[in-house]
Every structure is written in structure tokens, then in C-alpha cells.
């Protein structure tokens, strides 16, 4: 295989390749570090981090569905202080970029996390205004374009690292929301978060999830994600991290052709612990097969 150029630039940060992990599916890399060489990842996007520790929702928190899964973890996390103390030093041992996903219930909470991260050795911030599993905040910010603009602006004001805003697909018009983030000063966009879903255990006549509803992820949602990346890439000038059901290099190429600069592997990690490496190799194989020298040559090529 000839060496292909997979370098990508996301909001001023250069990644050796576009492959990263989707927040909440990879912890902070410690567990998957037993299966994959973290040095080979373009970036690790860590689990959502809040200003204090969050306990998360009751169990069961997972339901397998056709070609996908529902989760209702509810952003369980140790809080930003423990994260800075433990997870950043671990990840810094590797030659990969660190993207920190920010969780909060209020604008003040988001800002508090971001302020604490101002002096931390990290590369990018990903603002999670799209979690379907936390009632008080998250998704309620992400479904109104004006609110998206407002939250983005407030967080951008206190952030030291480039700010990516992660969007929810549970909206009528994703383009309007993306434009809101752009107007608020976002440096990039991540899409999509999970689709709100539900499963019922017909034998017990009860919802499978203790939280009743949860976020649908996995290959079942890929066409929705591709459509949204395509629409947003056409309408907004910001770099996009595309995600939603990426299982293979071909899936990643599909996102890139739709307009994504980066690609994040999420649920696939659970099915195949080395999924990120397989996606990376698959991208290389495609580039070789079609003589693509730079990955940017095929980005957003769908008219």
C-alpha cells in the first residue's frame, strides 16, 4: 500500500488522520488502549465531562435494537477536576489529539467546565448540547437555533481551545441549528448525536430502559447521519466531524464524501474493539484503490 495523506485540519488543529472516537463510547481511552494503539488515532473524543461528578441514570441503560442500540447512560462522569487529574495525563502519553466533550445542565455549568479546562493540555472542545438522556439541559439547548447561538456565544467567550458544537438530530431542520452554532462563533460541528428512541419488553409489558427513552445509535442511523452531514456541509462553512453508525472504512468515506472532515467511530467499538483501526485501514485501502492522494480531494464531492 502506498502512503496516502490522511492529514486533516479541524478548526486549526492538525490531525494525522480523520479517525476519532465518538464521545461516550470510548471512555477516556484507558479501556480500549488494551485493544488498539491509541497513537494511531487522529483524536480521542472523551466521555462527556461536567463541572461536578454525575451519577447517571438507573439501570437497565441499554437495549439492543435491529442494527443498533438504545442507551440511557445519562452522562455519568467523574467531573472535570478528576478528569484533569487522571485522564489528561494518561492520554498525553500518546501521540493523538484530545477532544473534550463538555456536558452541562445550564450555560453556567458549561462555562465552568470550559474555564477549568482553559489551562489544561487539550486540543479541542466539543460542546454537547444534544444529549437526549438528561432532562434539564443538553438537548433542550440543542433544539432551538436561537438558543444554540446563545449557548455557543457564551461558551466561546470563555473557551481557550477551538470550540466544536455537537448537534442533535432530533430537530425539524438541522441546517437552521447548524447556522445558529455558526452565528454563535462555533469553530466546528459534530453530527449527529443519537436519535431519541424507545423499546418495549412485550413479555414484561414494560419499557426496556429504566429511563423509558434513550438514544439510538449504530448502523441503523447511518443514512440519517449522512443526510444531515450532507445538508449542513452544503449550508455552513465550518469543518464537520461526521458520526452515526460508522462500522467500516467505506462508511467513513461516505461521510467524507458527504462533507465531513473528521469521522468518529462510536457504537462500532462495542461490536469490534479494534473498529477504529479497521476504519482507518479501510480509508487507506479506498484511497489506494482509487488513487486518492489527499483525503481532502474527496471531501464533500457529492453535488
Amino acid at each position: 500500500m502506498t502512503k496516502v495523506n490522511m492529514k486533516v485540519n479541524i478548526s486549526g488543529v492538525e490531525l494525522k488522520n480523520p479517525v476519532m472516537t465518538a464521545s461516550g463510547t470510548f471512555g477516556s481511552g484507558i479501556e480500549y488502549g488494551e485493544f488498539v494503539d491509541l497513537n494511531r488515532l487522529g483524536a480521542v473524543v472523551v466521555k462527556g465531562i461536567a463541572n461536578t461528578s454525575w451519577k447517571g441514570n438507573a439501570s437497565p441503560r441499554v437495549a439492543e435494537t435491529f442494527g443498533g442500540m438504545l442507551n440511557s447512560v445519562g452522562l455519568q462522569n467523574p467531573g472535570v477536576d478528576e478528569f484533569i487529574q487522571k485522564d489528561i495525563p494518561f492520554l498525553r502519553k500518546y501521540d493523538t489529539k484530545i477532544i473534550v466533550n463538555i456536558a452541562g445542565k445550564t450555560v453556567e455549568e458549561y462555562c465552568e467546565v470550559v474555564k477549568k479546562l482553559a489551562t489544561a493540555d487539550i486540543d479541542l472542545l466539543e460542546l454537547n448540547i444534544s444529549c437526549p438522556n438528561v432532562k434539564e439541559g443538553g438537548v433542550s439547548f440543542g433544539t432551538d437555533a436561537k438558543m444554540v447561538e446563545y449557548v455557543t456565544k457564551q461558551v466561546k467567550r470563555v473557551s481557550k481551545q477551538p470550540l466544536i458544537v455537537k448537534l442533535t438530530p432530533n430537530v425539524t431542520d438541522i441546517v437552521e441549528i447548524a447556522k445558529g452554532a455558526e452565528a454563535g462563533g462555533a469553530d466546528g460541528l459534530s453530527l449527529i448525536n443519537t436519535l431519541l428512541g424507545m423499546a418495549i419488553d412485550i413479555h414484561k409489558r414494560k419499557p426496556v430502559l429504566a429511563n423509558v427513552v434513550g438514544g439510538l445509535s449504530g448502523p441503523a442511523i447511518k443514512p440519517v447521519a449522512i443526510r444531515m452531514v450532507y445538508q449542513v456541509a452544503k449550508a455552513v462553512g465550518l469543518p464537520i466531524i461526521g458520526m452515526g453508525g460508522i462500522m467500516t472504512g467505506e462508511d467513513a468515506i461516505e461521510f467524507i464524501q458527504a462533507g465531513a472532515t473528521g469521522v468518529a467511530v462510536g457504537t462500532a467499538n462495542f461490536i469490534n474493539p479494534t473498529a477504529t483501526m479497521d476504519v482507518l485501514e479501510g480509508i487507506g485501502k479506498y484511497m489506494n484503490q482509487y488513487g486518492v492522494e489527499k483525503i481532502s480531494d474527496i471531501r464533500g464531492i457529492i453535488a
Partner: peptide
Amino acid sequence: EERMACGIGACLVCTC
């Protein structure tokens, strides 16, 4: 016993 996804401690769905 709990319903699990990753099985290695990363996804936080099988909590107690």
C-alpha cells in the same frame, strides 16, 4: 448480572 454493551468498562451501561 446486568445488560452490557462493550463489556470492558468504557460505555457505562451496565452499572450497579
